[in-house]
């Protein structure tokens, strides 16, 4: 019941953001304008609405959901409150792949950037699983190795950027994450993954609840613990890599959305996952609206506003939370 009411509230909030997202920006439209543009718009309005705002809104929603879900899955395996997709080293590996591409192959087609990020992310994940195969039962080990890989990759990125300072702005932009300039062509990069992985995650919810009782107990209840952990992590990695490949390394959504969802819903996985995905979508969509409507025609990277919206609310929750 609580799940129902919270999710309806969040859905309404999301709908409100959608309407803001379609109407606000450098060119302000009203809701009725949207209808008339649908009927017969000038070329400009048509472009703004259908080639620019609508795909951007959809991408922000999907990436937000995907990051939040990834965060839930990582946190259910690595039992550290700091756990987020970032500690798996996936984000930094993707960043390294992209920065490497920008620096060493400046003539490469920009359409390769998402694929470079995806390959980077998956290679890092492969390396991570390879290095931890024998000790998957120890989440803290996984976290340390993931952090180590991440640190190594970001150190190399820093080194490259200090050698080629001209690329700093572009790389920084990518590492902060932005929904600017995303269009319909990015949709096939993320939608199919979500259509498979979201039902998959829901299917695993019950098992993850059992896992949260502790590894021994879960094993005694007949759960294949290691198997479940690997599958969950792979899903988390896929979701994180896909999100990063589309929008750049947007941090914080994957950490904060699951935490907020848990503050609201308690420990069971199913409600947490649903609410976290809604929250992720809301946070990123709101961030993108801020990013382009706060001082038009200036556009900021949405990644900045993710933290500006997410962090204060999160801190507020932390200070209000009674059960410390």
């Amino acid at each position: 019941m609580r799940l129902m009411s919270v999710s309806i509230f969040l859905l309404l909030m999301w709908a409100l953001l959608v309407s803001l997202s379609l109407t606000q920006g450098a060119v302000v439209l009203s809701l009725s304008d949207i209808w008339s543009v649908w009927q017969q718009g000038t070329l400009t309005e048509h472009f703004v609405l259908w080639n620019h705002r609508l795909p951007r809104m959809i991408i922000a929603t999907l990436v937000g959901m995907s990051l939040a879900l990834s965060g839930c899955m990582v946190q259910s395996v690595v039992r550290n409150p700091l756990a987020s997709p970032d500690i798996l080293g996936v984000t930094s590996a993707a960043a390294l792949a992209v920065v490497g591409l920008l620096i060493y192959w400046p003539d490469a087609n920009v359409h390769w950037i998402p694929f470079a990020a995806l390959i980077g992310g998956f290679s890092a994940a492969g390396l991570l699983l390879l290095l931890t195969t024998k000790r998957l039962a120890e989440p803290s080990h996984l976290a340390l190795i993931g952090l180590a890989l991440g640190a190594l990759f970001s150190a190399i990125v820093d080194y490259l950027l200090s050698k080629y300072p001209l690329e700093i702005n572009g790389a920084m932009l990518w590492m902060t994450g932005s929904v600017w300039g995303r269009n319909w062509s990015h949709l096939p990069l993320i939608l199919p993954w979500l259509m498979v992985l979201v039902p998959g995650a829901i299917y695993l919810c019950y098992r993850l609840d059992v896992l949260s009782l502790g590894q021994e107990k879960a094993a005694s209840l007949g759960l294949k613990v290691t198997h479940l952990q690997v599958v969950t992590l792979l899903m988390a990695i896929a979701l994180a890599s896909v999100s990063v490949s589309v929008c750049g390394a947007i941090a914080f959504v994957g950490l904060v959305a699951p935490h907020i969802a848990r503050f609201l819903m308690g420990g069971r996985h199913f409600p947490v996952i649903i609410i976290a995905m809604l929250l992720g979508a809301i946070i990123l969509l709101a961030a993108d609206i801020f990013a382009r409507a706060i001082a038009p025609p200036l556009e900021f990277p949405a990644g900045i506003f993710v933290a500006m919206i997410g962090a204060p609310y999160f801190i507020f929750l932390i200070t209000r939370y009674k059960h410390w």
């Binding site: 450098a26 060119v27 400009t44």
Partner: peptide, 18 residues
């Protein structure tokens, strides 16, 4: 007319300038 930052120019404003 300013069309925004060099790193992320506003596509909306560019379009509206026709």
């Amino acid at each position: 007319t300013s069309v925004g930052n060099r790193y992320q120019p506003s596509l909306e404003v560019i379009a509206s300038l026709k």
